[in-house]
Structure formats: C-alpha cells, structure tokens
Write a protein that binds this DNA or RNA. Structure first.
Lengths: 212, 212
DNA sequence: ATTTAAAAATAACAATGTTAAGTTAACGAC
DNA sequence: GTCGTTAACTTAACATTGTTATTTTTAAAT
C-alpha cells in the first residue's frame, strides 16, 4: 500500500532504515547472513523493493561499510589533537587496533575482502577530508611526527613509513580476526602481541627509544 | 557409465583430478568461480558425483588449499639449510612473500578468509612436520636465530617474535593482494615497501644492524 | 543367468540475487 | 469530481547455486 509521493527526506530515511537492518545482520552474523530477503523482512518491505534504493547487494553493503568507515575516521579524530606528535602517533595506532578488533566484520569488509576497485569519485567518503578519510589521517600523523624528528634520519618518505606501519598493524589485526581460534597456532596473548608489535615498530623506525 | 570397481588408486586419481579442476578455476578466476557444476564439467562428471569424493564444497576447497599449503612448506624448505641463521631467516621471509604474491588466491584462502575452526587432527597436513607445516618451520627458524643471539636481549620468547614477524609480513602481503589497485591509496612501489618492512623488523628486533 | 552393489547420472529442492510484470493509491488536469 | 498518470510497492518468476533423493548402469560374485 504505497501512500505515494515521498519527500526526498523520507526516501533518505528509508535508505538508512535499510542500511541499519543490513548492518544489524552484518555485525552479528557476518556478511553471509545479509540476504536481500532477510534485510527486507527486517525493514518491512519486500526484497525487490530494496532495489529501488540500492542498485544491488554490493552497493548496499558498500554503503553500510562506507558509513562505518567514516565512524572509524571519527573515532580516530579524537587522537588528532594530542599535542605531542609521538603520543598522538601511539594513540592513533591504539585506537585503530581497538576499532578493528571490536568491529571485526566491518574491518573484514574494509580491508580483508576483495572488492571491485574503489573509485574515490563515486565513494560517499570524501578523500583527504580528515573528518572522513582515515588514511589521510594516518599520513598526517606520520608526517607531523616525521617533521618533529621522531624517525631515523635514513627514513625520508613519510608515506612509505605510514604504509609500513599500517601493514604491520593490519597484519596483527587481520590474523587476530581470522585465526585467533585456530588450534594450529599457539598464540601468545593478544596484549603481548600488540605490545611486541608496537615496540618493534618503534625500535625499528624511531631515532631513539622514548621516555621510559 | 560406471565401469565399476575402482581400485583405491583409481579413486585417488579421480580425487586429485577433481582437485586439479577445482584448482584451475580457483587460481585463475578466484574462489567464486569454483562451483560444483563447473568443476564437474571440467572433470567430465556430473556435479553430484563430486559428493562421492568430497563431503561438500568446503571440504573440496580445503583439500585443494591444504595440498598447496604443503607446497608452501616445501618451497620454504629449501631455505632451511642455509647455515647462517640470519641469512636463513631473511631468505625464509623472502620466499614467504614471493609465495603469497604469486599465489594470491591460495594465500587468500589460507589466511585471509573465514573458516570453520581448523582441527589439526582432521587436517591432511602433519602438524610439526617441517616438511609440511610452514608455521613450525617459522618457529624453528626464529628459534635458531634466537639461540644464535641475533635478537635484542630483551626479547625472550621466540614464539612471540615469530608471531610478530609473521603478522608484519602478512600485513604487507595481505594489503598488496587486496588493495594494490585501490585508487584511494598512493602506494609506494612494492619493492620499496618490502624493503622498508624488512628493515623495520630487523632494526626493531635485532641486536645490531647486520654487515652492510 | 541372476543377484548385488559400486559408480554414476537425472530429478528435484531450497535458498539466493535479480528482473519483469502487475497492483495500489495519491496527485494534477480538465 | 472524474480520470489518467505515475511513484511506490508487491507478487511471479528466472537463473544459479549447493545439496539430497532417486534411479540407472554395469562389472563382478554366486
């Protein structure tokens, strides 16, 4: 029963209702639980109606994840005004790991699964906007630490430093998310692995060990 | 037309034929291309016959990947008799990265996708057999380097060292495999990133920079 | 020759993403 | 006020998937 003529605000509301329903399934049961029919049922529509709001399932999922990518950027934002560049840097990493491990399904979706190549022009995320783009935040944090003379003098490319740190931290998070319960590996406690990784990065990249 | 009574060697041959067909699809078109029907067609059987040889699709895929996990272990084995512990260590890492990046689909399957928790008792891979178990190889390589006094004296747990290095290298491989074409990131050249990662690990973990 | 059971195929089911074809009802035009 | 028009939505339907149930074929065993 279509009460017809929806203002564009109402349409937007339906869109986000769909996204919320999808997110609910997504977070608690993983991406395989997100079927068009299940999402539709939760939102009180028929499955085919979702196609009035999203081109296909991939676009729906992308929209959900994009929205939460922005949440990541906002979670990290709180660390950006720590005045000491080194502390800012460390807190940034800390928050990143925490986001990854408390939102494993989102993290998986962002960085651990194949996607059609992402076209920044089509994304809902504004590239280089530090409010939304966590990668540009990382570049910023590393660059300012670099200007502060924190890194070894042989390291001359902040982007390369950033990509190396990101890879290392990502590896930690990714293995934890996917293989934490793997009986094959006799994992050391997570906290120990985090600390070991942080120390490795610091000793490996920085001029001298910081105050402690 | 079933010519009946297959010797167990013949049955094994069919099994590996199925696995080879699956691998072919898997390698060149990714895991989504591996449908039971497609595999069956390649091997000249009907789809349902595959269930005579594998319990379900997951088990088939697992068998394929397990076989190639053993190949990884054998590729790494060649580095195990390098006499200098440090060189052995470095070559081991080099070969690991090379395997990951030349077999991205296998690597994805091994370490980048969700699995039902792996029970070592049911695996075709023999845990702790250095011929088959790459993880135990890693532990061995790190432990011997540790005994050789290569690492900083504050590092007292070879398993923790190994897990940290693995995570770092894995992060490098995983990001390359999934996000290499992502226009969002202005990636530095792969070689530069590999070298930066290796250097970070070495300066971060080792007592002193090696001969050069 | 008849029976038996292994080896395979065909038919069929349920779930999924998606498209095509209706259905309902609010609005504008006369 | 009646009558299209069309937005908003639903129901049917299709193709593809993994998988099971049922049936067929055929080499061997008796």
């Amino acid at each position: 029963m279509p009460p017809k003529v929806k203002t564009s605000a109402e349409k937007q509301a339906v869109r986000t209702a769909i996204m919320d329903a999808a997110r609910e399934l997504f977070i608690h049961q993983g991406v395989e639980a997100v079927t068009m029919r299940a999402v539709a049922q939760r939102v009180g529509y028929s499955a085919t109606s979702l196609y009035l709001y999203f081109g296909d399932k991939e676009q729906l999922l992308r929209a959900v994840v994009d929205a939460d990518v922005i949440k990541l950027a906002q979670a990290l934002k709180s660390t950006l005004n720590i005045s000491d560049p080194l502390q800012r840097f460390l807190q940034f990493g800390q928050h990143y790991v925490q986001f990854a491990l408390t939102n494993p399904n989102h993290y998986r979706m962002m960085f651990m699964t194949q996607h059609p190549p992402c076209d920044p022009a089509l994304s809902s995320i504004e590239q280089n906007n530090p409010e939304q783009d966590a990668y540009s935040q990382l570049i910023g944090v590393v660059t300012s630490a670099w200007h502060a003379g924190v890194f070894k003098p042989t390291l001359t490319d902040p982007a390369l430093i950033a990509q190396t740190i990101w890879a290392a931290i990502h590896g930690l998070c990714a293995l934890q998310i996917n293989l934490a319960d793997d009986a094959w590996i006799n994992w050391r406690p997570l906290e120990a692995r985090v600390q070991a990784m942080v120390e490795m990065c610091m000793y490996g990249l920085m001029k001298e060990t910081p105050h402690e």
